[in-house]
Design a protein around this nucleic acid. Sequence first.
DNA 1: CAATAAACGAGACGGTACGTCCCGTCTTCAG
DNA 2: CTGAAGACGGGACGTACCGTCTCGTTTATTG
Lengths: 199, 199, 199, 199
Amino acid sequence: MIEPALYDGEASEGTRRSRASHKAILQAAAEVVRERGYFGASIEEIAARAGTGKQTIYRWWRAKPYLCLELYGLLVPATALEVDSGSLRGDYEAILRRLLKFYRTTPAAALLSGLIAESQSDPALAEAFQRRIVGQRRHLLIDPLARARERGEIDEAFDQALAADLFTAAVWHRLLLGSARAEKRFVAGLLETLFGERS
Amino acid sequence: MIEPALYDGEASEGTRRSRASHKAILQAAAEVVRERGYFGASIEEIAARAGTGKQTIYRWWRAKPYLCLELYGLLVPATALEVDSGSLRGDYEAILRRLLKFYRTTPAAALLSGLIAESQSDPALAEAFQRRIVGQRRHLLIDPLARARERGEIDEAFDQALAADLFTAAVWHRLLLGSARAEKRFVAGLLETLFGERS
Amino acid sequence: MIEPALYDGEASEGTRRSRASHKAILQAAAEVVRERGYFGASIEEIAARAGTGKQTIYRWWRAKPYLCLELYGLLVPATALEVDSGSLRGDYEAILRRLLKFYRTTPAAALLSGLIAESQSDPALAEAFQRRIVGQRRHLLIDPLARARERGEIDEAFDQALAADLFTAAVWHRLLLGSARAEKRFVAGLLETLFGERS
Amino acid sequence: MIEPALYDGEASEGTRRSRASHKAILQAAAEVVRERGYFGASIEEIAARAGTGKQTIYRWWRAKPYLCLELYGLLVPATALEVDSGSLRGDYEAILRRLLKFYRTTPAAALLSGLIAESQSDPALAEAFQRRIVGQRRHLLIDPLARARERGEIDEAFDQALAADLFTAAVWHRLLLGSARAEKRFVAGLLETLFGERS
DNA sequence: CAATAAACGAGACGGTACGTCCCGTCTTCAG
DNA sequence: CTGAAGACGGGACGTACCGTCTCGTTTATTG
């Protein structure tokens, strides 16, 4: 969630946000986005499916993209990318395989492209997207690089941030443009290009 | 245009497409997308600004994304990326700088993200996007690589298609996510990663 | 037709109106009005069904109601109402039965109500409707009354024009409002009211 | 209204119909029909003038004719035709004069002809028109006849329903076809024909 | 017997309105 | 006193036709 929402029982005065509604809305949103895509998903249908009023959605999220932003965040459990195989190549191979599986099994692609598109004309959304999705992602990608640096696998001159960005770029490009390139070759080729010929 | 439209005075039966309207619509679309972004652009406003009826738009394009696809294609004159500096690094540096300028000066970013987003739930659009934008782009990126191969700058093992894709991925990622990374460093870093330390 | 159109071969310079098209248009109009009603009938469909261009319709009729006016006129062959049974009651009984049958078997009701409705806001149409439909009708209804006057069945004081109008009013009212009143009783009752108890 | 609509504050679940909008729509419809006639009146303009969304009209009326049906009903206050002068002739003279004034001062003629025309191809509308306009009208016309029967002015053999229908037919015919017949003569002649020579 | 000029079929054009969907806000009432 | 239900003003959708306007093509005198 964008702001650290207060739940029933967490705080003092008045009634607090209903955990049940919150969950039902996100679940309904996930379903509807999966079925109709990002554009096809309407607040109206999400509310109906969640069994809530529209107002309950607008009370907690400014608009569809912000709901989707939270939804996207929930689809990737933070731990999913944390690996420590002992080698840089091993870490990234694991991350890559998990990511590709993640995108195959969730409506994340639809969400991602929709959010990127809406960000083009909504700076606030762009900022939130950066902070909550891109930033977090970069951290997870830089951790293995930092460990590799400690192990001496890469040296000081290696631009870690650039590598992380290029990795994300490649994965998202593949995801959103559905390149027909065989997966195995893609994985190997990408890693070789980023980290060197063999490993 | 998607199909080689017939204009006034060209052969065949019946009435012909109006060159003037066609042009006015694309021009209006460019304006409106620039001002309001991809989503904010409505067929209604484009028609009004072009001084045409809505039906004239729907007669020639299936829907907004298809109009935008054609518009995107027209924004990049095919020749804009054709360079031959004599070296691989030189070619790509030139291409990269032209691309970055292109995206700074046209509504291409808004179009691009919108088209990618809509492609997620419209396979026909995805296919058209691949064929008309991605495919064409790939060709232009592979030409310099082929010349470099002939000159012996890169060897047979170098995966040209992968390099071209990664290049596009990096550029679009930077474009759509507005990474704050300084341009100079981005250019150098990307080329180094793709083609090696110095070249 | 509203103006005495010139047909092929009738007159001097240039090309002349095509008899075949004229007929095909009226025929198509009759069909379409029968199938879709007065409002549902579009010039576009009439043209398509007649196998003509729309312009050919607009060349000869100002608009749909004028086409329908001519069509209505053609549905009632002028002779259909001319009877001379020897008695006033007999004449009107015959006329009435023919009219009721006429309306049962042609799209005249749809045309009539549509024309009356459009006449409310188009004085020129109202005038044409009066002259070409109402006027002609009145004549045919007054002829039997004039003969009855000569025979002495009715006297000078009898308001022939009023009777004719009331007769038309009653028939159209029945036609357009579909009163459930049994036909036999309607016929007898109307004639009794207009011309007296027995006759 | 066609169905006994629920207003704010009336019983039952959910949100209620807005009295203000309902009234504003009917008022706007009356204006627009008066200005542009039945066909010229568009839902779009009515909504704009009423200051409502189009959907608010479509939510409560199936289509233009149904809105007009309600409007027509409101133009004739039910009491307008209730008279009791003590004589049949007196009652009908009063009714006739009121009707003629009513049609002179309201857009009723445009509505009436439009509704009749649309009824030709919409049986549900025809039924509603019968029930809500014709039926009610017939009642009001039969009351004076029933009183006359009690007073002995007319006998059992007099077909009251037929007389009422012929009266309506004559009035509407005159109204919609704008016969130039002088009003005084029309009134006298019609009543004489229906009820006898003198009174 | 061409030349020519109108009428023709076809259908694109600038428009208006349709009836629908959904937006984000506002109001009502049941729990 | 929250929250589902849903009406509201509004904007855009994509479609149907309007009546006008080219387009070639046919056709039937006229020079």
